[in-house]
Every structure is written in structure tokens, then in C-alpha cells.
Write a protein that binds this DNA or RNA. Structure first.
Lengths: 142, 142
DNA sequence: TTATTTAATTTGTACATACAATTGAAAAGT
DNA sequence: ACTTTTCAATTGTATGTACAAATTAAATAA
């Protein structure tokens, strides 16, 4: 069977972007029941696991810029999922009603994992994820 | 040496998005000299290699939605890099001044490749790219 | 102690991307 | 021949993300 391949499939930029879009779409479907987008769920998990965490640290953990974290937080605060408390030049972030949603987020997250491992195979998925992550870390350090 | 790992690094969604952002940033730096963003460069290459191609096929090759392709084309048409010609319900896309930029695009693209293979190692990069691409294809087919 | 520098956070703005709805044209059914 | 269905492309709108600039507060230097 001949696979029709993209002319760009040898390019890491192209492939990484393609995978990112596909997996993000799957995640959106999975997290849709909660009514919270995947990135916001990562934020909620982060804050839930470390109440009082500061935006800079959230940004590091999520590998996003602080400004992006500010936008994500603003949205979740508007929906009463968390609260920001000013402390001098710092901001402390606390979860509010995450006890309700947290289990649902975990469940959706597990479902997502099951879905892609069902397609890719658990071991393959694990190794791929690992390879992707370590590449991201290495390339980020430039 | 202890690696500080993200709590989410076992998640394909998280890792794929992180890599996508990092490699996209590198690409933007590399393509900055041309003044054309990476996605637009893929578009120009696609049209250059297949003059008269239609948006739907471009979308397939680039793994993007047709609406996104319309936006990308509009921008490049405004900058006189290509031209759209209506043909019934179809649209035919032709390159205009790509002869000038095409070699520069190829050069930037090669530079990008060199940069990330220098960090990751050529063989590792190749296998990673391959794994990512085939995962994207499999997951897209759902 | 006051002035300067550094650092955390937020805001203004812009961009790539997608979905849903729309337009317009070809194809198929009657 | 006319109607209905399908399909390509585009437009309106929304979202996640980032950069540069602005703000505010802490830390350091004078």
C-alpha cells in the first residue's frame, strides 16, 4: 500500500505543527463537556495542585509566556474558577471552585490519553511524547 | 544531573504544543529576513511547485483548513506574491514574483533544518520528525 | 535616603488558525 | 428543463498565543 505523503513531511516545523493541531482538536472534543478549553484546564490543574502559585511559575510549568498566562487567568477568573490576589509586585493565584471540576478534568484528560494511545499504541505514544518533550526542552535552550 | 521536568511532560497534547511553539519561533527567526512568516512560505513553495493549484488541494498538502488557506492567500496576494484566478466554482492560484523569493525561502528552510539538527542530531531529528508525522496522520484519520 | 536598576505583571495590538454560515457554481435527480 | 443536492471558496467571528510597551514594586547603588 502506497502512503500518500506530504511534500513537507520531512520538516520538523511542518510535522510538529500538524500534530499540534490534530491533538489539540481531539483535546477540545474531550474537554468540551466541561466547557473549558484544554489550555485553561492545564491552568486549573496547575493552580489546584499549588494554590498561591505565581504567574511566572505557572508560565514556566506550562511553557507559555507570562502574558499568555495573564489572558488565561483572566478568563478563568471571570468564570469564578480562580482568584488573583495582589501581594506587592507579585500576584498569588488561588483556586476557588476547582474541587467540583478537578475530577472531571482528570477524567477527560485520561480519556484523551486513552484515545490517542488506542490509535498509536501505548508504548509508541509514550516514546513519542518523550522524544517530543526532550526536543522541545533542548531547542528552547537554543 | 537531575532534569527538572514539567508535571505534564507525559502528555502528548502538552509536549506537542510546546514543541510546535518552540520550532515555530525558530522558524520565524529564520524566515524573518524574507519578511514572510513560515506558513506563508509553505504556501508560496506549494504554489511555486504547482502553479494553478486549487485552494482545497493546498489545504490538504499543508494540513490546514480551506478557510485558513484563504486567509494566507489573501495576504500573499496583497503582497503580490501570487494571484488568484476565478474559474467557475474553482479558484486557480498562480505564483507571480516567487522566482525572486523562492531561492531565499529554500535557503532559510535549509538553515532551519541545520539549526535543529545541530541541537538534536540529524538521525534523531529525522526519526522524531517521522514519528510525529505518522502520528499526526493516524490521529487525523481518527 | 534618594536615585537607579531590575523584576513581576498586565495591557495594547497583531497573527495564525478554525468553525459556522454564506455565496456561487456545478452535478444529479426528477 | 427545472429543482435539489453537492461542493469549492470565502467571510464573519472567535480563540490561543506572543511581542513590545507600560505599570508597579522591589532591590541595589549612590
Amino acid at each position: 500500500m502506497i502512503e500518500k505523503k506530504s511534500p513537507y513531511c520531512g520538516c520538523l516545523l511542518y510535522s510538529a505543527n500538524a500534530l499540534s493541531r490534530v491533538i489539540t482538536k481531539m483535546a477540545e472534543e474531550e474537554f468540551a463537556s466541561i466547557g473549558v478549553a484544554p489550555s485553561h484546564c492545564f491552568l486549573l490543574m496547575t493552580v489546584h495542585n499549588q494554590p498561591g502559585i505565581q504567574p511566572t511559575e505557572i508560565a514556566e510549568k506550562m511553557m507559555l509566556t507570562p502574558s499568555t498566562v495573564t489572558r488565561l487567568m483572566a478568563k478563568m477568573e471571570a468564570q469564578r474558577y480562580l482568584q488573583r490576589i495582589s501581594d506587592g509586585k507579585f500576584t498569588l493565584v488561588y483556586p476557588t471552585k476547582t474541587n467540583e471540576v478537578y475530577p472531571v478534568i482528570l477524567e477527560s484528560w485520561r480519556n484523551l490519553y486513552r484515545r490517542y494511545t488506542a490509535v498509536l499504541g501505548e508504548e509508541v505514544a509514550r516514546q513519542l511524547t518523550d522524544g517530543i518533550y526532550s526536543a522541545a526542552i533542548k531547542l528552547e535552550a537554543r
